[in-house]
Amino acid sequence: MIDFRYHIVSIVAIFFALGAGVVLGAGPLKGTGSEIVQSQADKDRAALEDARADLIEAKALDKYRDDYAAKVTAGITDGKLSGRRICTVTMPGADGDVVTAVEEALQQAGGQVTTRVSMDAKLFDPGQRQLVEPLVNELVTADIDFPTESNTYQRAGMILARGVAAREEGKPVDTDATKIVSGLSDSKLLSLKPTPKDRCSLAVVIAAKPPTPAPDNSTYNDAVDFAEGLDLGSAGVVVAGVPESAQNGGLLKTLRGDSEATKIVSSVDVANMPTGQQTVVFALVEQASGKAGQYGAVAAKNGVAPSADQVKGN
């Protein structure tokens, strides 16, 4: 009997609720649900329009900044690299547009880009170390003097330097240089375009934007050692990249955390901007004088660029 009464009460309650819903729907709350949905849609639409406007404004300001910098500083680097031969060395995954923009800035400053060396990821693959070590020993020439404490990748950088670079200007690509370039190319560790006739004295290493998820910073230890070796075999090296490359998981972040490397190798973390490309030029000028600095926008120890005094007279 209790169960039957319970069911009767439940059924009555359900019908009462349904009846109340019909009455309210026809009364003062009619349309409330649709109005709430419409109100939220209007808010979302307004937020989207605001975000779109902010994006348009940000792009306009970026364009203004770049155009202003290009016009106001036009000619500021003219002649700074006159008579200098320069190699560009692209790390695996480096942005082609950044590479091209940097090369154009070097040429605008009077430099001659002798070759672009494209590094293959195979060179820095830990699983390929057994290939790199014997190849370094095979390609070493009589005039290469490895520092006593140097490691495999510092030596590999010095080997590449002997193939495409020199501490002095005007050094031709001789038999030893050709042997080195052929050995590294045949091993699929790098490619060159064009084949240089003269060896450069300065080099710009173009870093890639770090992948997602960002790797551990130690991933780039070998690449930093390689840049050190390239510097030891030339008149100077600047490592250039985008801002992300100076954050965790980026090559510049690792470089700047190496106190020994930063004594000899310079870096610029805004090479995707016209002002950053000019900073690469000034950093190279400073390198040619035997000094190094870390420049840019992200934890750059030495500020946005070398001072006028640091590049005066070059």
Rank of each mutant, 00 (worst) to 15 (best):
Y68S: 08
S34G: 15
F4A: 15
Q108N: 11
R162M: 10
L61R: 12
Q130M: 11
A53D: 14
M91Q: 01
A101F: 05
G127S: 07
D309K: 15
P196N: 08
G250S: 00
A297T: 11
T115D: 05
S259Y: 08
P274C: 01
A299T: 06
A203N: 07
P147V: 02
P196C: 08
V98N: 05
A26N: 13
R85T: 11
E244I: 01
T152R: 02
A300T: 03
A166S: 13
Q247T: 07
V204Q: 06
F282T: 15
Q108E: 15
A47G: 01
I180D: 04
L202S: 05
F124T: 05
P134Y: 00
R256G: 05
V89C: 04
P194K: 07
A142P: 04
I56L: 15
K209I: 14
T254E: 07
R45Y: 08
V181D: 07
D78T: 13
Y64T: 13
G96P: 04
I206M: 12
V304S: 12
V102A: 01
L284Q: 03
P147Q: 07
A161E: 02
R162C: 09
T219D: 11
G293D: 04
V237C: 02
V280P: 08
Y68E: 08
I36D: 03
K179T: 09
Y295G: 04
L184E: 06
I2Y: 10
L189I: 01
S182Y: 12
